[in-house]
Nucleic acid binder design. Structure first.
Lengths: 365, 365
DNA sequence: CGCTGTCGTGTTTACGTGAACATCACGAGC
DNA sequence: GCTCGTGATGTTCACGTAAACACGACAGCG
C-alpha cells in the first residue's frame, strides 16, 4: 500500500495466535498470565515477581533466575491497565487533530510519536472528522475518559473558544498552531518570520510588490502568513494587492494561478504553502508564462517534493520535527513538574530555501 | 485517599493531579474524583453510581438525577485504567509503522483512526524509528505491555524476525502491505492490478514497451508493482527493459529521469509512485523532452497533487481510506469473535486515472 | 394475611500490580 | 549464647470499577 518510507529487513511471525478468547463470546474474558501465575510456577510470592519484573534490588540471583524462567515459560507480560491504575498514569499522550492529510500535520505527529516513544510514552490519536465545535468539545470530553496523561492539540484553537470549553484540570495541554499563547502553552512555527522572509526575498530581487495566495481563513497559520505578508509590504511602502484565497490544495493554487496570469502587473507571488505553489506553477505554465522569468513564486513548508517542481521551488522551510519535539517536551515538563500549563508561545525558527522559482523581474508585455 | 490527613507520599509522579480545586495549602491531593466520591455526595452506593455511569437500567429517576448532579458537581470522569483492568480490554488499537512521512501511511492511518473512533476505539501509534532489528523486536515486545486489544501492522512483515518475537496470543493482528496472507490477515491495495493497468494503458496507446522506476527493494508494494509490470510486458510479448531503482523520493525519480532521457528508445515510463513520477517529469523537462509527446509517464498512488503536475499525471488511484476501513473492520471482527486471525488477503481495488501525461508515442529524433 | 416474585439498592469481591509493612534466616557483636 | 542488624522474601492492602449476589420493600395473588 504505501509508497515511500525507508527500507529494512527482518522477519516476523506474529504470535501463533494459539488461543485467544477460548471461544467465550461477548468479548470480555481474557486469559492472561498474571504475576500470581508466574509466582506459583516459580514457587515464590507475587511480590518477588514484581520485584524482578521491575528490576528492583533485593532479589538474590538464584531466585531471580527462577522467576525469569517462569516468566519465559508462561509468556508473562505485565498488564498495563493494572499498572496504570496502580500508578495513576498511563504513559500516553493524546493528540487531537482534524486529519493527517496535510503535510504539516502528519510530519508533526510523526515527530511527536518518535520523541514520545523515546521518553517511554505512547501516542493516542483522537481524530476529529468535521471541525464543528460540538465535535471538538466531544473529543475533549472523551479525552477525560481516555487513557492519557496529557494532550497535544493540533487544531486551530479559536474553534474551541466560543462555548464553554473546560479542559479537565488534571490533563496537561500543549497547543500547536494557534494564537492562544496567553491561555495555553503554544508551540508553533514562526509563521510571521517565514512570510516576511519570503516577501523580503522577492522585494530584494527587485519586484515592485508581491501577490499572495492564502490558505483557508480558518487556519491560524494562514492568517498569520497573510498578515505578515501585508505588513512586510506596508513597511516597505509597497502597494498591497488583493490576496487570492486558496484552501491549501494544489487545485486551489491552480485556480489562483489562472487568475494571476491575467494580472500583467504581477511578477511575484507568495503562496501560503507548497501545494498551492505547485498549482500556481501549473497554471502559469499553461498560460505560457515562464517561472521565474515572467513570474517568481515562493512557497511555504518545503515539502520534500518541492525540489522537483518545475522549476524547483523557492520556499520557506518549516521544521516540523522540531515542532513535534517541543510539543512532547512541553507536555512532559508539565507532567513531571506537575504544574499547570505555562501560557506562552514557543516559536520554532524557519529559513528560506532559495531554489529556481525566483529571479529578478522582467518587464512583461 | 481523602483530602484530610497527611496524604500518603507517592513516589511515582502522579499523572494529572494536583491542581484539582479548593487549594489545600501544601496538600498534594491525589485528585481524581472516583465513584466513591460521587456516591458519597449523592448519598448512594458506588455501585449505583456505576449503574448510572453505564446507563444500566434499574435505577429510579430521582436517584439517577441525584447521581448525575453529583457527577457534574465533582466533575467526575471514569477512570479508564480501572475500567480496562475490570473488563480486560482497552478499546484501543495499536498501529505499528515506520513513519508517517509517506503519503500512503499517513492517509491509511488517518482512515484507521477515523473508523476506529466511529467504533469507539482509540488508536495508539507505535513508531519504529530506526530500522534495526532490535527496534522492531522492541516494539513488538513493548506491544505486549501496551494498552491495546489488537494491532495493525503497516510494515513489510518480512522485516520482522521469526526467531525471538512472539506476539502475545491474545492480541489480534492485521497486516497491511505484505504477502503474508497465508499466515496473517492481510489487507492491501491490489498492487499487481494497478501495475498491470498502467502497463496496459501505455501499450494500448501504442508504445512498444514500458520502462519502470521501482521503489526500494525492501518494499513489498514496490516488489509487487515491479513484478506485475514485468509480467504484463512478457504477456504482451514485449521486451523488458532493465528497471531503474528508486527509493520513493522525487529526487530518486529525478535521477532515474536523467538516465532515461539518454535512452532514445524510451517512450513510456511507469513510476512506482507519484513522487518519483514528479522527479521524472522534472528531469525530462530539463532535458528538453516533452511529456507526453516525447515520453509518456504513469505514476502510482494518485496523490492529490498529481492533478497539478506539469502535465497533470496519469496515475493509478489507491483507495487508502478503504484500506484503513478494512483494517479496522478486520481487527474488530477478530476482537469480537474472539478467534484467531483468519489468514487471507483482502485486496482493495484500484483504478487508473488518465490525465495528460500519457499519449500515443511519437518517434524521437 | 402470608407467600412469592420483582424491583431498587447496598455489599462483597476480583481484576493485576506494587508500596508498605511483616517475617524469617543468618551472621556479627557483646 | 543472646541480641540485634541486615538482607531476602512473604503478606496485606489499595488503586477504581463493575459483576455477582444479598437484602429489604412492596405489590400481586391465593
Amino acid at each position: 500500500m504505501d509508497s515511500d518510507g525507508p527500507a529494512r529487513q527482518v522477519r516476523v511471525p506474529i504470535g501463533g495466535a494459539q488461543r485467544g478468547g477460548s471461544g467465550i463470546p461477548g468479548g470480555r474474558r481474557k486469559q492472561r498470565v498474571s504475576m500470581a501465575d508466574v509466582a506459583r510456577l516459580a514457587g515464590v510470592s507475587s511480590q518477588t515477581v514484581s520485584r524482578v519484573a521491575n528490576g528492583h534490588p533485593g532479589v538474590v540471583g538464584a531466585t531471580r533466575e527462577q522467576v525469569l524462567a517462569a516468566m519465559r515459560e508462561l509468556g508473562y507480560r505485565p498488564n498495563s491497565a493494572a499498572r496504570a491504575l496502580r500508578y495513576g498514569q498511563f504513559n500516553t499522550i493524546g493528540v487531537i487533530l482534524f486529519g493527517l492529510s496535510s503535510t504539516g500535520n502528519s510530519r508533526t505527529v510523526e515527530a511527536i510519536a518518535t520523541h514520545a516513544a523515546a521518553e517511554g510514552y505512547a501516542i493516542t490519536l483522537i481524530p476529529i472528522g468535521i471541525p464543528t465545535q460540538d465535535n471538538v468539545l466531544g473529543a475533549f470530553t472523551r479525552m477525560g475518559e481516555l487513557a492519557v496523561d496529557a494532550v497535544i492539540v493540533i487544531i486551530e484553537v479559536h474553534l474551541l473558544d466560543a462555548g464553554t470549553v473546560t479542559l479537565p484540570p488534571d490533563v496537561h495541554v500543549v497547543v500547536v498552531d494557534s494564537d492562544a499563547g496567553d491561555r495555553y502553552s503554544v508551540v508553533d512555527t514562526d509563521q510571521a518570520e517565514g512570510a516576511r522572509l519570503a516577501v523580503r526575498h522577492l522585494l530584494d530581487l527587485g519586484h515592485h510588490t508581491v501577490w499572495h495566495v492564502t490558505g483557508p481563513e480558518t487556519s491560524f497559520a494562514s492568517q498569520r502568513r497573510a498578515q505578515a505578508w501585508r505588513r512586510a509590504l506596508e513597511e516597505a511602502g509597497r502597494p498591497v494587492p488583493p490576496p487570492l484565497h486558496g484552501d491549501w490544495s494544489a487545485e486551489s493554487g491552480y485556480a489562483a494561478g489562472l487568475a494571476l496570469a491575467g494580472e500583467p502587473g504581477c511578477t511575484a507571488v507568495f503562496a501560503s504553502n507548497d501545494q498551492m505553489a505547485l498549482g500556481l506553477l501549473r497554471a502559469l505554465h499553461e498560460r505560457g508564462l515562464t517561472v521565474p522569468d515572467d513570474v517568481s513564486v515562493v512557497g511555504f513548508d518545503d515539502i520534500p517534493d518541492a525540489s522537483c517542481f518545475i522549476p524547483p521551488l523557492t520556499t520557506v522551510h518549516q521544521d516540523f520535527a522540531e515542532v513535534g519535539r517541543r510539543c512532547v517536551q512541553g507536555v512532559l515538563r508539565q507532567i513531571r513538574e506537575g504544574g499547570a500549563a505555562r501560557p506562552g508561545t514557543d516559536l520554532v525558527p524557519v529559513r528560506l530555501v532559495v531554489r529556481d522559482s525566483t529571479a529578478p523581474p522582467r518587464t512583461r508585455a
